[in-house]
């Protein structure tokens, strides 16, 4: 049984049909990526899984239970965390407080233990723990957003455009961390515009085009697929 199973998902923004019958699956332990151009419906799909948007039709099953209609604030206790597009860290709160918020549904002891682990994965966050989130650099903010999502000990972590606006060297660092988190046992669903990076670390990939899945398969194969190369990898 798949960990996450999306079947024939349809999502609208008012009268705009943003996601048109998308189906995909994520197995436990995998890194799955959704790639595609701007406006293909990648973020919409993630936000719908996270409960921020409601689908018009289709099913979302996580560990065999339906997620449709579950409010966003109940998702973390189900084991799903979303690291949202644009990071959306709490700018006026300190790094430490941001992390504490990530463990909102957890006990004080669990929060403390997770904070230690996040500081181990992101030593830079430990150095800056008393600084306001808004004063961090873009890369550090991305690390904070990821650390914050990790605080809830998610089984499935969804990442929306983690490389957005970062220098290439930082992009590499962020993707190394994602691989590392996966190796430690977190299943990853990754949405990216940086297709070559995403495909290089993912097990499987789905290509979204104007709201539909146009291609899917092994990430490595897609990385070398002629059509994918032309459309998304600049060559």
């Amino acid at each position: 049984m798949s960990m996450l199973k999306i079947t024939d998902l349809n999502v609208y923004y008012g009268s705009i049909h943003a996601v048109k019958g998308v189906s995909f699956e994520v197995e436990e332990g995998e890194i799955v990526t959704l790639i595609g151009a701007n406006g293909a419906g990648k973020s919409t799909t993630l936000n719908t899984v996270a409960g921020l948007l409601r689908p018009r039709s289709g099913s979302i099953e996580f560990e065999g239970k339906s997620l449709v209609g579950v409010p966003a604030h109940k998702m973390v206790s189900r084991g799903i965390a979303l690291c949202p597009e644009g990071r959306r860290i709490f700018q006026d709160m300190t790094v430490r407080e941001n992390l504490e918020m990530g463990a909102f549904t957890r006990t004080e002891e669990e929060s403390l233990e997770m904070r230690k682990r996040v500081y181990e994965s992101f030593p830079r966050l430990k150095e800056r723990r008393t600084q306001a989130g808004g004063t961090l650099s873009g890369g550090e903010q991305q690390m904070l957003a990821m650390g914050r999502a990790l605080m809830s000990k998610p089984k499935l972590m969804m990442l929306d455009e983690p490389s957005m606006g970062l220098a290439p060297i930082l992009v590499q660092e962020i993707f190394d961390i994602i691989k590392e988190l996966n190796a430690q046992g977190t299943t990853i669903l990754l949405v990216e515009q940086n297709a070559s990076m995403a495909l290089s670390i993912a097990n499987r990939a789905y290509v979204l085009e104007t709201g539909r899945v146009s291609m899917s398969g092994d990430a490595n194969e897609l990385l070398h697929d002629e059509r994918v190369r032309k459309a998304y990898l600049g060559g």
Partner: peptide, 12 residues
């Protein structure tokens, strides 16, 4: 600061 992000933390 951000109601959407707060929801993602599990805050009602």
């Amino acid at each position: 600061e951000d109601k959407g992000a707060a929801q993602l933390m599990g805050i009602n």
